[in-house]
Amino acid sequence: MRKRYFIGGGILLVAVIYLLYLSFGSSVSYYVTVSEFFDRGTELYDTDIRVAGKISAPVNWNAEGLDLAFTITEGGDDMAVVYRGAKPAGFKEGTDILIEGKYQSDGIFQASQLILKCPSKYESVVIE
């Protein structure tokens, strides 16, 4: 009886770890800061990546075409970013942001997703 449990448990464990490994591999994305990105030369161009930095001027928001162009900065490096879609709530200069997308060879980061970190002022947001 005991043996059966161990075998069953073993199979289950292997299955779970395999499943975890599979999904981990495909859902994981590396993230770097702006200066780390440029330190790597052209290595990270054209790959799916997340880059962390602070939003800085100039921020151009074209409501008509739903285009948002801005710069992120970190460690003395700047990166130009364009994003198609609505400007997210809380988007303003000085906010920490995580952008997801690809850095094109034309020197502009095409962002597919913007993740804003709550700035320190909203500490009170957390309550759970």
Binding site: S23, S27, V28, Y30
Partner: peptide
């Protein structure tokens, strides 16, 4: 190690 982030597809899929 490297800084990595999981997107939600990880959870959705599994």
């Amino acid at each position: 190690g490297a800084k990595i982030a999981l997107d939600r597809s990880f959870y959705d899929r599994i």
